[in-house]
Amino acid sequence: MHSLTPITALGGQTVRVDTIGNAELRESDGLALASVHGRLGHEAACRAHLSDLLDGRLPAVGKAVLRDPEAAFWTGPDQWMVGAPFASHEDLASQLKSRFGDTASITEQTDAWACFDLQGSAMEQVVELLCPINVRQMTTGDAQRTSIHHLGCFVLRRDPSDWVRILGPRASAGSLHHAIVTAMRSVA
């Protein structure tokens, strides 16, 4: 076991939680992420591996397979992001590499993203102030990439459906958090 102590994306020792009105925003540091990009000519094999990993459920365009806190969601043509509990899967990328072999390019993405869980009855109103996605029409299992405060973010609608997970660029975690909290105050 190495000796380095991690900090959260917001720079704390523990995750930050903000409750404003009918919405709660919770920073999450418990997610390991790796991108999976099918290699040319191996797309079918790559999908088979992914489907196998997700009990036969392959995330379609704009969709996620949720198995909290594990998830995989579509990010582009033949591209997915796979998530797993950080505590048990810190080496997710190398685990996937062994599984997918030469059928996919796997890249560690765990610390590329800051993860925020936004939940509560005001969630939809908050999201409406943040990004152009049609959150009212999104249902559990929908995954969209969008722009929040000029930051490319993924928004995943989870179960229960008053909950979205927002993944944004880690270096801008503070700005993203500020934007979300500001919107929460606006609708509170």
Binding site: T75, P77, R145, T146, G152
Partner: peptide
């Protein structure tokens, strides 16, 4: 009139 042009989906799937 009609022009075929390139757009990059930077805030989306990078296509």
């Amino acid at each position: 009139g009609t022009l075929r042009e390139l757009w990059f989906h930077e805030g989306g799937d990078r296509s």
